[in-house]
Design a binder for these strands. Structure first.
Length: 531
RNA sequence: GCGUUCGUAGCUCAGCUGGAUAGAGCACUGGUUUGCGGUACCAGCGGUCAGGGGUUCGAAUCCCUUCGGGCGCACCA
């Protein structure tokens, strides 16, 4: 819709024009302050320019009116244009708001270490990534969702050790001394029991079998992670294991040429020449690779797979890491501008106004699965998708357990369910609704129809700006328009029933499509949960 | 200290490719259609958009600066 209007303006003026939705509905559907910018060039008053432009649109069929007001140009789309678009959408519901981009994108997100279950911080990145993924898919991008599994290095050794310590204390009833760093949490019990069954208790006391235990355990942890993600409707296309990448090590190092050098018995990359604070070690004196080493091979592999664009979602605490990875990509001979790193910020939780208690059994982190148990996956997704991902967020769980308009996910679902209920009570035939005209609906209905048809613009905008919160914001406001319309206008049993129901079908389509892009299924009925 | 990011209503947050009177929910006050789910709707209250300067016809939005908070500054991940 907006694209169409933009295109018309571009044609007429020979330049890109800023189009906005006027705050005040009485100004029409779209508006542009273009006359102000033109005023200087043309040495004429904005009012005059706007006036002339308005007149020049007189006979276009897309617009019911084009008016100039105080230098602004206000457009009102014609009923015919809106009606035609809406009818098309209802006939092709699965194509609604779809796009035809076909850029090949690799999106890497979550990538939490397989050393423990996902916590609330991971959840935010997971939801953000998956929402972007859904939006991109819908827009036609050829996008791949990838999880990078850090299954090599210290943290894996630590996992083996932690299970041994846990088992020796809790299963073998030995008294053990814990080192400074080790993992804790309820999941260790599950792992220890599983290991006992599989290997026998000997695995817990034999230090040389720590690695074997760890390798088994990290796969188990991945299973836990994948199942938590699945509970949230998040699925990955590919998993890449760090441990499988090192075969390529020599070749990749050679690729970086003179940008790798040896000093003090270690291997460094000269990332400082690319704006990093200092050069970084990639191989330690004892020959063990650093974390960065894995990322270098991984990113080399990514670029060799040949995507047009790369997106990584990282926790914001890793933002200092960006320059060195960019440097490595450049050294490998690729364009680091193709890599876009998006950050997902910290989350702090409240429950009834009090800081959410981190349970000891969970290891003093808030588990993602616990939050799903408390408020459900839909609410979890909605919260995280609703806020800009790169700003810190604090929210109260209690708000999402309520069943009224203060709970946005509930509010939107209710709007959808209301429409479905009405359709089931319709006194006219289905065909009458499908064939009804959407013209002469009146001002209010017209605006509601327009609102419902805005989804395509929102989807496109939300993805290209990487600001997924635009989608839930839009759905909230569409739901509000629907509830208000419902209150103002009687539908069933009136003369206009068929056409009004058709209008509601468009709203329902928009809500349902929007929700599904957030990984949430629209409800046809609201059922009260009994406590 | 350096880098980065944020500072919008009492609270949680939108708005930030610069544009017409600064928005929503919560909280607080009051109201609502014989009409289809009141699980909804409407109204009131509440803001020097952290402070200061600059660019512009126009700044919450862009630039500079001060203050305040987060995060980072490993051969940890």
């Amino acid at each position: 819709m907006k694209q169409r209007v933009s295109a018309l303006l571009r044609e007429k003026l020979g330049r890109e024009v800023v189009l906005e939705k006027p705050r005040d509905r009485s100004f029409g559907h779209f508006a542009t302050p273009i006359a102000f910018s033109l005023a200087k060039e043309l040495k004429k008053s904005p009012m005059l320019i706007a006036e002339e432009l308005a007149n020049s649109f007189h006979d276009s069929e897309e617009f019911a009116s084009v008016e100039s007001v105080k230098g602004y140009l206000n457009f009102r789309l014609s009923e015919g244009f809106l009606a035609e678009y809406a009818s098309w959408a209802l006939k092709n519901p699965s194509d609604f708001a779809k796009g035809e981009k076909n850029q090949k994108i690799l999106l890497e997100f979550v990538s939490a270490n397989p050393t423990g279950p996902l916590h609330i911080g991971h959840a935010r990145g997971a939801v953000y990534g998956d929402t972007l993924y859904r939006l991109a898919k819908h827009l036609g991008y050829d996008i791949t969702a990838e999880y990078y599994v850090n299954d090599a290095g210290n943290q894996i050794d630590l996992l083996g050790l932690s299970i041994q310590l846990y088992a020796r204390e809790n299963i073998l009833k030995e008294s053990v001394e814990y080192p400074e760093a080790y993992y804790r949490g309820e999941y260790l019990e599950e792992l220890a029991n599983g290991a006992q069954e599989k290997f026998g208790v000997e695995i817990f006391t034999n230090e040389s079998r720590q690695k074997e235990l760890a390798m088994w355990a990290k796969d188990k942890v991945m299973e836990i992670i994948v199942s938590t993600l699945a509970d949230t409707n998040i699925h990955f296309d590919t998993f890449v294991n760090e441990s499988g990448l090192y075969d390529d090590w020599d070749r990749v190092m050679k690729k970086m040429g003179a940008n790798v050098y040896e000093k003090e018995g270690k291997l460094w990359i000269s990332s400082q020449t690319k704006g990093d604070d200092h050069d970084r070690v990639v191989v330690r004196e004892d020959g063990r690779p650093t974390y960065l080493a894995g990322d270098i091979v991984y990113h080399n592999q990514k670029f060799e797979r040949g995507y047009e664009h790369y997106i990584n979602i990282w926790g914001a605490d890793h933002h200092g890491y960006i320059p060195r990875v960019n440097a490595a990509i450049d050294f490998l001979g690729y364009d680091s501008n193709k890599l876009e790193v998006l950050l997902s910020q910290m989350v702090s939780l409240l429950k009834d106004g009090e800081p959410y208690k981190m349970s000891k059994r969970a290891g003093n982190v808030i588990l993602m699965s616990d939050i799903i148990d408390e408020i459900g996956a839909d609410a979890l997704r909605f919260i995280f998708a609703s806020k800009k991902s790169d700003t810190a967020l604090e929210f109260d769980l209690a708000e999402f357990k309520k069943e009224d308009s203060s709970n946005p996910i509930f509010y939107i679902q209710y709007a959808h369910a209301r429409i479905k209920t009405m359709l089931s009570k319709a006194s006219v035939a289905k065909d009458d609704i499908t064939n009804a005209s959407l013209k002469n609906l009146g001002e209010n209905a017209d605006m509601l129809l327009f609102d419902a048809l805005l989804l395509p613009e929102v989807v496109e905008d939300a993805f290209t700006s990487r600001q997924v919160q635009k989608l839930p914001e839009y759905l909230k406001s569409l739901a509000a328009s629907l509830h208000k319309f419902y209150y103002d206008v009687k539908i069933i049993g009136t003369e206009d029933e068929a056409k009004l129901l058709k209008l509601l079908c468009v709203v329902a389509l928009s809500l349902k499509t929007g929700l599904s892009l957030m990984g949430i299924a629209a409800k046809d009925k609201m059922t009260k949960e009994e406590e």
